[in-house]
Structures are given as structure tokens and as C-alpha cells.
Design a binder for these strands. Structure first.
Lengths: 338, 338
DNA sequence: CCTGGCACTCAGTGGTGGCGAGTGCCAAAG
DNA sequence: CTTTGGCACTCGCCACCACTGAGTGCCAGG
């Protein structure tokens, strides 16, 4: 087990390195932090920390930098979550208020998060599977052509065009609309399938085909559109990465363009509480030198989607975590109000 | 006026520089292109071209590179639009077919364009102002709360929540819905204001307030949502820029994140025909070392939106223009079919 | 007007040496 | 057993320098 002071040394190394972006040596450490011991002692501690794999030297005769394992320990045991300052909180509120629709909320959130953390922000749209139905609308566009519009409690709207096997009258359609809504409004998407399974039976023979088609499309929409959407922003912050960077930045940009990768990334995050994935803990290769801080957010007590930031492993974890958490809370609040 | 041969020399310089990314010298030129003259002659021509500002030397004793003005001349007079190969055309078709909705079409287009040109692709969503109304739907969510859903011929859906001054009955709402649709379906958005201006008059006194509110919101949606959306992709291609690049790439990424900038960029493009803006011709400072190739696309003969690519001024103009034009045509076709 | 020749310029390359931050080890002190 | 000062050593970084070669401008002759 590592002594208290060695942990303190590790913390100091992480803090310094995050600040300066340069390998930190024993002398500099004792100067900047009141460790109360001499450089030589620190050197011994460093040797021990290196032995355990928490820090490493880029090359002999250079200072030490934290390894992924070092950051992990730092995040788990040495760092808290830094709460935002009051002006920062106020800024968040001002920035998010005045959003007019869901797109706007997500867009503002992404910009806010990117600005606050000076990193790349990723915000997932509220997931269909976990939200509830606000309304289902059926529009007859042509005798045998119906448009299905699905509205969620988070303000998301999905529409599908349906070619019906047979024409359906306005009355039947209105009937179907009414029954459908009375059954599913306010219910969770996951419950919908059972709720509508027997609905076709109560219709006239001639309409059953169409009703089934409509219901099938509805269910399909629920499944298909579980394919989540998300928005990213702040990619320009990637340029602050390293000075070496074409090599560093390229795979990251590539990874960020693959929605699938990002969705998996957020999906891996715990449903509640904050998740921090550091460097190689990320499955995707392109993100091996980045860390992801993600958290769920929702209109109620339950998470309907996730948001987070992607940045260099060498990031200000307490600050980033604080910002991410704060933003998630406010967004949840906004969603609950609307 | 420049002699024919000098133009030929300029063309050769542009082609070589685009290929090698290195300043091109007189000797190399005569070797790679059958100009039929000696390096010394080419040198004289180069001196003349430099005098006129079409090319420049990064430093004494280096080859020449084209200036923005040089590229301009190249694009205007020396280069055609390179048509795509048959396999490329087929690839486009395969890639775009099978798109399920508007988001999907735009998403696929962006990826396709980025891949084809190996540059950053920008695709604007079909604009509301130039499209026509397919359907207007009114949903009563609560006694004094109505949702307005607007569906365009390009498949775009906009919705707005309306708080009514007074409750409105289902019958009146259905009446309004019917009249509204009979007046505006199939009409262009720009015509809608006149078409509905007197609609409130024909309603009962008690409903007039609500009807006016609904109409006002409808008009507002038309105006507000002229705030266009767009999608970008292929930012990872920016890493192919230069080797110098933190400095180059940063302002570009920043510019690309500002939708406003991009919209202005596309907006500046001519409505019909292809527009190429080279280097400093772009108003935005961050894009001073990039060129933009943009073109309108639409479901009919008229452009409903624009798409294009952003890349280094040193780009393969004929190839890029060919790809952009071809993609725009296919997308227009897809939109017309749906 | 074109061409070959010639002197000149200058970015890039590679080698050299000094500097200094940082290390590991050790022996002595606490 | 831990801490500390001392010391020799390593090695990345930088400044300096000379060399090379691609490319140029100019000029005199075809």
C-alpha cells in the first residue's frame, strides 16, 4: 500500500502536469507544493510510484507524467468534484433559459458545455425508449396514405409515411387516433407494444389491414428510432491538445464523426452517477489518449439520455466533472419545465 | 494579356502543386509536362506570371505556388468540371438510395460528399421558405393548448406549442384545420401570409382570439425557421491540410462550428450554377486559406437549398466540382421521388 | 523569342558541443 | 527505517556551422 505522502505526491504531479503540460520533476514539485520534504525524498517516492505504474518518464532525465492508472487513482481517491462558482452557475442558467425547442436545448447545451470545459462536448437527445408518449397523430394525406406523427414528453417529434393496403375512411382513422391516444398517452415507449397489441381486433374487417400496418409502423418507429441522435460541439478545442498533433487529433476527429462510436461511448457510462473513462479504458482505439466524462440527465429523477465531454487524458478532472454535473442538472430542470 | 503558353504554364503549376503540395520549379515543370520549351523559357514565363500576381515564391530560391488570383484564373478559364467515372456514379446512387427520411438523406449526403472529395462537406437542409406546404396539423393537447405541426414537401416537420387565449372546441379546431389546409396545401411558404390573412374573420367571436394566435404562430414559424439547419461532416479530412497546422486548422474548425457563418457562406453562393470562392474571397477570416465549392440543389428545377465542400485552396478543383455537382443532382432526384 | 550557361541565394540537413533539468545511488544524519 | 545532501551521469534541447542542391535571375548567342 502507498503511504499517505506518496498519494500526496501523485496528486501534486497530476495537478502540476495538468497545469503546465510538461513533465514534472522532483525539485519543481517541492517548490510548488508544501510537501515538507526534500527533493531527494520525493525522488524516492516517485521511484516507488513509477514501480507501481502510476507515473512514467517520457525519457530518462526528464520529469514524470501520470499514466492512465495514475489518473484513475487520482480520480477515484484523490480528487473531488469541484463545484462551480456562483457566476458560473448563473451563466449556465442564463444560457439555457430561452431555448425554444428540443433542438435548441440540445444545441445550447452542447455549446455551453464546450465553452465551460474548453473541450469537446457530446449531448445525446433524450432517448425515445425511456420517454413517454405525449401524443400520436394520424393524418390522411391521400386515400391510402397516412402520416404517423409521434410526439414525446421531451418534445421530440418523429414522423413516418405509411402506404396502406386499403383506403381508410376519415371516421375510422379518427376512431383509431382516439383509441390509440387514450391507450398510450403518458405511457412509456417500452410499454406501448403490449398496450396496442389487440387494438386491430376491434375494427371492421375492411380496416384491419390498414390498422395493423399503422400499428406495425408505430412499433417499428419505436424500435428503429431507438437509434439515438446526438450533437457534438467544441471540436476546435482539440487544437489545444498537444503540439505534436496531426497524429493525435486525426483519430479523435474520426471517432467523433462516427455516431455509433459516440453512442457506444455514452452507452457504456453508468445510468446514474458520473462515469469517467480514462485513456485506454475507452474501447475505441482513436480515443486511447482521451478521457470521457459522462453523466445521465433527465426530466425527472430518471435519466433519459446522457451527455459528456471528450478531452485529453491530461485534463482538469475535478473542474470538468463539476461542469458536466452542473450542466446535466440544469438541462434536466429545463426539460422538466417544458 | 497573357500568351497561350503562359496560361499553360500556370495550369501546369496548379496541377503539380495540387498533386505534390510542394512549390514547383521550372525544371520539374518541363519534365512532367510536355511544354516543348526549355526550363529557361519557363522561367521567363514564371517571372511574368509572378509579375501579374498569379503565382508567388514562398522564399527566394524556392519554386512557385499559385496565389488565390492564380487559382481563380485556373478555375475560370483553364479547368473544366471533371465528370465522375461510371463506378463513382453508381456508388453515389447506391449510397443515397435506401435513405428513410430527410435526416437520413442529408446525413448520407454529407458522408458521401466528404468521402468523395476527401474534404469537409456541408449540406443545408431544404429551406422552408422555398418549399411548399404538404400539411398543417393542429392537435389539442389540453383545453387551451394546441400543437401546430407543419409538414413540408421535402419531408421536413416543424412543431410549435401554442398557449391559446381561450379554450377552443374540437369542432372549431377541426374546422380551422380543414380550412387552413384547403388554402395552403401545395402552396409555397412565401405565399402563405396572404392566403390566411382573412381566415380569422370567418370564425365565431369567441374563437377569433385563438385562431389569430394560431395563425400568428404559423407565420412566425415560417419566418423563424427560415433560420436554416445544416449538417457538416468529414472534419477529419482537415488533418490532411498542411504540416504546419495547429494554426491553420483551428480557425477553420471554429468557423465550421458557427452555423451562422456557414449559412452565410452557402447563402453567398449563386442560386444556380456552381460557385467557387477561393481563399480571401471568403468573407470570414478563418476561412482565408480555404476554398468553398457550393451549388444549389432541389427536388425540381429550382434550388431549395445548397450543399458544398470546404477545403484547402490547394484542392483539386475540377474533381471537387465534378463530385459536388453530381451529388447535388442525385440528391435532387431523391428528393423529387420521395 | 528561345536557349544554354553561369553565378548567386537560401531552405534544409546533419554534425558538434555546451547547457541544464532531472535522475539514481550512496553514505551520513535523524 | 526514513530522510537528506551530495555527486556523477544521462540525455533532450539549442545554438552554431558548413554543406548541399534546387531553384532563380541575368546575359549573350542562336
Amino acid at each position: 500500500m502507498l503511504s499517505e505522502r506518496r498519494l500526496e505526491v501523485l496528486r501534486a504531479i497530476v495537478q502540476d502536469y495538468v497545469g503546465t503540460e510538461e513533465p514534472v520533476g522532483s525539485k519543481a514539485l517541492t517548490e510548488r507544493h508544501r510537501l515538507g520534504v526534500s527533493p531527494a525524498t520525493v525522488r524516492n517516492d516517485m521511484a516507488a510510484l513509477e514501480e507501481e505504474g502510476f507515473i512514467a518518464q517520457p525519457h530518462t532525465s526528464a520529469g514524470r507524467i501520470p499514466t492512465d492508472k495514475g489518473y484513475r487513482l487520482f480520480v477515484d481517491r484523490l480528487a473531488g468534484v469541484k463545484p462551480l462558482s456562483t457566476p458560473e452557475r448563473r451563466a449556465i442558467q442564463n444560457f439555457l433559459d430561452g431555448a425554444v425547442d428540443l433542438d435548441d436545448v440540445v444545441g445550447r447545451t452542447v455549446r455551453l458545455l464546450a465553452q465551460l470545459t474548453r473541450q469537446v462536448a457530446v449531448v445525446q437527445y433524450p432517448s425515445l425508449t425511456r420517454s413517454t408518449v405525449r401524443h400520436v397523430e394520424l393524418l390522411s394525406l391521400a386515400p391510402a396514405r397516412v402520416m404517423l406523427v409521434l410526439i414525446t414528453d421531451t418534445g421530440r417529434v418523429e414522423q413516418r409515411m405509411i402506404d396502406c393496403p386499403a383506403p381508410i375512411g376519415e371516421t375510422s382513422l379518427a376512431d383509431l387516433r382516439a383509441r390509440l391516444n387514450s391507450r398510450v398517452v403518458g405511457r412509456r415507449f417500452t410499454d406501448v407494444p403490449q398496450l396496442v397489441s389487440d387494438l386491430a381486433d376491434s375494427f371492421e374487417q375492411e380496416d384491419r389491414g390498414t390498422v395493423s400496418t399503422v400499428l406495425a409502423t408505430l412499433l417499428e418507429t419505436l424500435v428503429e428510432e431507438t437509434e439515438e441522435r446526438l450533437m457534438i460541439g467544441g471540436t476546435a478545442n482539440l487544437t489545444r491538445f498537444g503540439h505534436d498533433f496531426p497524429l493525435t487529433i486525426r483519430p479523435v476527429l474520426e471517432a467523433l464523426e462516427e455516431q455509433v462510436v459516440l453512442l457506444k461511448l455514452l452507452g457504456e457510462a453508468k445510468d446514474s452517477g458520473m462515469t469517467v473513462r480514462i485513456g485506454h479504458e475507452n474501447a475505441h482505439e482513436g480515443l486511447n489518449s482521451t478521457s470521457v466524462v459522462a453523466v445521465g440527465y433527465g426530466s425527472g429523477d430518471e435519466a433519459v439520455a446522457k451527455l459528456g465531454v471528450v478531452g485529453p487524458t491530461r485534463m482538469d478532472y475535478p473542474g470538468t466533472m463539476g461542469a458536466v454535473r452542473a450542466v446535466a442538472r440544469y438541462v434536466g430542470q429545463i426539460l422538466a419545465e417544458s
